[in-house]
Amino acid sequence: MSSEQQVLRRSIIVTFIIAAIGVGFGLMTGSYSIVFDGIYSLTDASMTVLSLWVTRLIAAGSVGQHSKLTERFNMGFWHLEPIVLGLNGAMLIGASIYGLINAIGSLLTGGRHLEFGWAIVYAAITIVAGCFMASYGRRANRRIRSSFLALDVKAWIMSVSLTGALLVAFVFGWAIQGTNLEWMSPYVDPAVLALISVVVIPIPLSTVRQALADILLVTPPVLRQHVDEVAERQVGKYGFLGHRAYVARVGRGRQIEIYFIVPTGAPARPLEEWDRIRDEIGEEIGGEGPDRWLTIAFTTDREWAE
C-alpha cells in the first residue's frame, strides 16, 4: 500500500508533466489561460516537493533517526508543516491574483485570438489526468489521513475544475467560429481566465487560516476540553488540588503539557507510582504515537504550573 511520501512523489511527477504540457500548449495556441493553468500546476508541484521533504523530516524525527538536523531540531519538525501549507496556499492565491490582473488587462485591450482545436485537446488530457490523480489521492488518504495529501487532493480537484471551465470556454469559442458571434472569440480566453482566477482566490484561504493558527499555537478548543476533562477526573481520583493544561496543534503534531498541583505534605509515592499515573492519564487522553508530545508534571508549587 502506498505511503504518504509515495503518493506525493507520484503526484509531483504527474503535475510536472501536466505543467510542462500546459505551458507548451499555451504558447502554441496563444492562450494565456492555458499558460496560467500550467504555471499554477508548476507552482503546486514545487510546493509538493517541499511538502515531501518535510514529511521525510517528520518521519525521520518520529523514528528517532540521528543526524545533524535532528540534533539541531530535537523537538521535532512538526512546526515546518503549517509553514509549508501556509506558503503553498499564499502562493496559489498570489498566482490567481496575477492571472486576474492579466485577464482584465487583456479584456481592456481587445482580447486575443487562439487555436481552439489544440486548446480543447489540452483541456481534455488534463481533465482525465486530474480526475485520476484526485481519485487516487483521496483513496490513499482514507488510510493515511495526512494534511499534505488532503491539500494535494484539493489542488487536483481545483485543477480539474479550472480546466473544466477552460474546456467549456474553448468549445464555445470553437463553436462560434464562422457565425455572427465570432466577434466574441478574442474575449473567450481572457474572460475565462478572469473567471477562474476569481473562483480560485478564496479556495486556499481555509488552509492558510489553519496554518496561521498552527504557527501561532492557537489552542484547539475541542482538544483543550478533552484534556481538561481527563485532568479533572484525575484531580478528583487522586485528591490533587487542581491542574493547569497547555495545549497546541502544530501541523500533525499535538503538544500537551499538564501540571497537577499536589497537596503539601501528601504521603510520599515511589517514582514507579507516579509513572503509573502518567501512563493512565496518557491512555485516557489517547492518540499515543510519534505525533503526540505529552508532558505530565506534579508539583506542590502553583508557580511552577503557571
Rank of each mutant, 00 (worst) to 15 (best):
M158F: 04
L166A: 01
D152L: 14
L149N: 07
S159E: 02
A165H: 00
K154G: 05
F148Y: 08
A155N: 15
L166D: 00
A129P: 05
R138H: 02
L149P: 07
C131R: 13
R138E: 02
A155P: 00
M158L: 15
A155M: 13
R143D: 11
S147F: 04
S147M: 10
Y136L: 12
S161A: 15
I157F: 01
F132Q: 10
R139G: 03
S159R: 11
D152F: 10
L151A: 15
G130I: 06
D152G: 07
A129T: 08
M158I: 13
L166H: 02
M133H: 06
L167A: 05
S147C: 00
G130Y: 07
C131G: 15
V160K: 05
A134L: 12
A129C: 13
G164F: 05
M133I: 04
Y136N: 07
M133S: 03
R145G: 00
L151E: 04
K154F: 05
M158Q: 09
S161T: 14
Y136H: 13
R138T: 04
Y136C: 06
A134E: 12
F132H: 13
R143E: 12
R145M: 03
S159M: 06
S146C: 07
G130R: 08
L167K: 03
R142W: 04
S161I: 09
A150L: 09
G137Q: 12
I144F: 08
F148L: 09
G137C: 12
R143L: 09
R142I: 03
S147R: 14
W156K: 08
W156R: 06
I157K: 04
T163Q: 09
S147A: 14
T163H: 04
C131H: 10
R145P: 01
G137S: 10
I144R: 08
M133A: 05
R145Q: 08
N141S: 02
R142V: 01
T163I: 09
K154A: 15
G130D: 10
R143M: 06
S159Y: 09
I157D: 03
S161M: 11
M133P: 03
L151Q: 11
Y136R: 11
V153Y: 05
L167D: 01
N141C: 01
L151P: 00
F132V: 15
A165C: 11
A155E: 04
A134C: 10
A140T: 09
S135L: 11
S147P: 06
G130C: 15
L166E: 02
I157N: 03
V153G: 05
G130H: 07
L167R: 01
A140F: 08
V153A: 10
R143V: 12
R143W: 01
I144L: 15
L166P: 02
K154H: 04
I144N: 06
R142M: 09
K154N: 12
R139H: 09
I157W: 00
C131V: 15
F148S: 09
R138L: 02
F132I: 15
V160F: 06
F132E: 09
T163E: 06
M158Y: 00
L166N: 07
S147I: 02
L151D: 07
V153L: 05
S146N: 08
R143F: 04
